[in-house]
Design a protein around this nucleic acid. Structure first.
Lengths: 248, 248
DNA sequence: AGTCGTTTGTCCGGAAACGGACATATCACC
DNA sequence: GGTGATATGTCCGTTTCCGGACAAACGACT
């Protein structure tokens, strides 16, 4: 439970004990994450779990072909393959790389074995599952009660937390899919936030200018999962810009 | 992993091995669930986990006072206190009894101890956590993409699965809170479903008449978590009315 | 400089849900 | 059988978002 900051860029790996890290290290494989790459397909057996180091991964819920929406977001603070951690071998959702980066990955089977060996490793991963569930709950809440501009502000903040940059690369079209709304709606909402001076929006780019303003614009829909993360997984490895959750 | 059907009315308890059941039995306490009773309050330490036997419990997400919505539903197929299972001591959500019934409950501390002792118990509970996460994802999806009438149909089906009765007791007002919409909207949507002959709606009562029709009305938003439950936790203890998930 | 695919900006009418108001219906209780 | 609290039915105008269409802007590539 100590946080030795063993040099890993992934926060979950970073908070592991030396012993757990030594257990994992030899089995971890560094790998690039390419945009649109699919890490988990619904109902397909999952081969690896990914500890994200940079970039961003979306968990997208699906039913009918036309019903799609993002239900969770994973950056360098988390991992994919939670169903593996929970003992299942496949996911009901799709997990797709949203923004290029890198990850350390581990074969499914190995993760299971190591979790059998180390209770403290298991404990950390389960606590992350809990935080991820909170994120999902809050997403359901925002989807049901939030206006488009509020949800957009929330989404930008969450992204901002999970990539270590102010400049995000994404098209309105893609954002619309993730938020489950029309592309034109995203365009208008971005203008609204830009008009308030909170962001700068150019072709395929969004730059965050005013985090505090965005939080205000999110109207209470942002922050709970991030606070839970800090409380439950542990505080940052060092840098924690004011007004931003410490893991960012 | 065998399903000895040891007589418990709670499905999770029922699928436990004899050994696990013997471990739990002496510590379980039967207790009534009264409507509106709060089993878990946000950020409050959780004293007990509840294995529901009858009635229904809602997990409600909250941020600002006015932002509330149901993010999960627990009946006799499940349990409350998932954050305990995952190693946290409190929940970000509120857990409230929606419909009267009974449960077997277990002090938080005891559950933790027993999970330390029995890996198979832990495994079963974690698989339920996974199913519950799927339920949450699908709720986020439905909230974001579904029309009110579709979400209402989905909700009625889910309730119908989780209480062993066709007659549900709830007011439009309450339903509106759970779905995160206006009360008047619920009234109109119920009429719509009633007009199609799918339900019968009277003061504080909704009777399910046509499950298949409701599934159609739900337009694909119903069924995934229920199927996951059957696949992951195991098939029913016996009765499985056609067209209804086997756990119901 | 010109071409072409992608991305964005901006229209429109219409559907869905909102917020508020008020009338009616139902039930528990005296 | 009357009374009052609770629940439901039905209006209204307004906001938010949708679905479709189309023009303009951008950027990569020749």
């Amino acid at each position: 439970m100590n946080s030795p900051n063993n040099g890993s860029r992934n926060r979950l790996l970073a908070v592991l004990s030396h012993a757990d890290r030594d257990l994992l290290a030899p089995r971890l494989e560094g790998i690039e994450l390419d945009p649109r790459q699919i890490l988990e397909a619904p109902s397909d057996p999952i081969s690896h779990v990914y500890f994200v180091e940079s970039g961003l991964v979306s968990v997208v819920g699906t039913t009918q072909p036309d019903h799609r929406i993002e239900v969770g977001m994973v950056g360098y603070e988390g991992m994919t393959g939670l169903c593996i951690v929970l003992g299942d071998d496949r996911s009901a959702n799709e997990t797709v790389v949203q923004s290029a980066g890198s990850a350390m990955r581990l074969p499914t089977k190995i993760l299971r074995e190591l979790m059998e060996e180390s209770r403290s490793l298991t404990s950390t991963l389960l606590r992350y599952v809990n935080v991820f569930m909170v994120q999902g709950s809050q997403t359901a809440l925002a989807n049901g009660r939030g206006r488009l501009d509020e949800r957009l502000a929330r989404w930008l903040l969450m992204w901002h937390d999970r990539v270590l940059a102010d400049e995000l690369i994404i098209t309105h079209e893609f954002l619309a899919v993730l938020l489950g709304v029309r592309r034109q709606g995203v365009t208008v909402a971005l203008h609204e936030l830009e008009g308030k001076g909170l962001i700068r929006s150019t072709r395929s780019h969004v730059r965050v200018l005013d985090r505090d303003g965005l939080q205000q614009a999110a109207n209470g829909f942002y922050g709970i999962p991030e606070a839970e993360y800090d409380r439950s997984i542990g505080f940052a490895v060092g840098r924690a810009p004011p007004g931003r959750p410490s893991f960012a």
